[in-house]
Simulated assay, not measured.
Amino acid sequence: MELTTKQITLFIGVLLTGLSAGLFYAWAVSVIPGTRRITDLVYLETMQSINKAIINPAFMIIFFGSVVLLGISTAQHYQSGSIFWVLLAATVTYLIGTIGVTGMGNVPLNDALEVLKLNKFSLNELATMRKEYETPWNRLHMIRTVFSVLSFALALAAVFMNSRTNFNQ
């Protein structure tokens, strides 16, 4: 069996979306609980460091590649009936719920944190800053986690629909 460009695009789009959803889920169930156990200064310093480190090619390929390949796959399945609509839902869900929430919510919080010279603040000020950052950041992270997992589930459903369609032909 020879794979088509359409099948390869769908496969890679689903793979990248799954990796993105997995990253966000793993963060939610490991990093967030772990950071609750550290002091305010260490938490804020850690988040400053992570926010710099996450901007790398491997993350960017997964984060943005998901929506690009889902979008291409959606266009390729334009004449495919319900598969098209499921892929469109996966693409829009990821674009708005993952990229949109990150860009409009988490990134501005990260940018505001980045400019702070943490060693110049009192313990009380650090506690306040942490609360003002951590609470909304974690809430936004949960939203993007749910949307990325939903997008992955929809994209995976499209794969099953596609394989069933191809099998019946």
Rank of each mutant, 00 (worst) to 15 (best):
K117Y: 00
A21I: 08
A58M: 12
L15V: 15
N106Y: 15
N166H: 11
L116E: 03
P108A: 05
L123H: 07
T145M: 10
V107H: 12
T46L: 00
N138F: 01
R37Y: 02
M129L: 09
T9A: 12
F64Q: 05
L87T: 13
F64L: 12
L23D: 01
Y133N: 03
R37E: 08
F167D: 00
G105Y: 03
T98M: 11
I50E: 08
Q7Y: 00
V67M: 13
T39C: 04
L88Y: 06
V68L: 13
Y94F: 14
N168D: 01
T4Q: 11
A58F: 14
V14R: 15
F147Y: 06
N106D: 05
L88K: 13
S66F: 06
Y25H: 03
A112M: 11
S163R: 07
M161N: 08
L19K: 13
L87Q: 13
L23W: 09
R144W: 08
F63I: 02
L41G: 03
V101R: 14
N162K: 11
Y25I: 07
G34I: 15
I61N: 02
Q48K: 11
M129H: 04
R130G: 11
G97S: 15
I50Y: 11
Q76I: 05
I72D: 00
N162M: 07
R144M: 07
S30L: 03
V68Y: 06
V31S: 00
A153Y: 11
E125A: 02
K6D: 04
L113E: 03
F24T: 13
L150D: 05
Y133W: 10
L16H: 05
F160I: 04
E125D: 01
I96W: 09
T102M: 05
L109C: 09
I54H: 00
Q169F: 06
I99W: 15
A155I: 13
I83L: 08
L150A: 15
T135H: 04
I62H: 06
D111A: 07
P33S: 04
V86Q: 10
S30K: 08
F24S: 08
M1Y: 08
K6Y: 01
N110G: 05
E134I: 07
N119F: 13
I72L: 07
L16S: 10
R144I: 00
R130L: 06
V149E: 06
R164M: 09
R36W: 02
F64V: 03
F59E: 04
T17K: 12
L140S: 09
K52D: 05
V115E: 04
S151Y: 05
V86R: 11
T128L: 01
N56F: 12
T102P: 15
G81I: 11
A153T: 15
F84R: 12
L123M: 04
G97K: 15
P136M: 08
N162Q: 11
G71H: 14
S122K: 12
N119S: 13
K117R: 13
K6W: 02
G97H: 07
M161K: 07
N166G: 02
W85S: 13
N124E: 06
N168Y: 02
N110M: 03
Q7S: 14
A53G: 08
W85H: 15
F63G: 01
L16V: 02
L19N: 01
A158V: 10
L154E: 01
L95G: 09
W137K: 14
A90Q: 05
N110R: 12
L150E: 02
K131Q: 13
I54P: 00
F152E: 06
N119T: 03
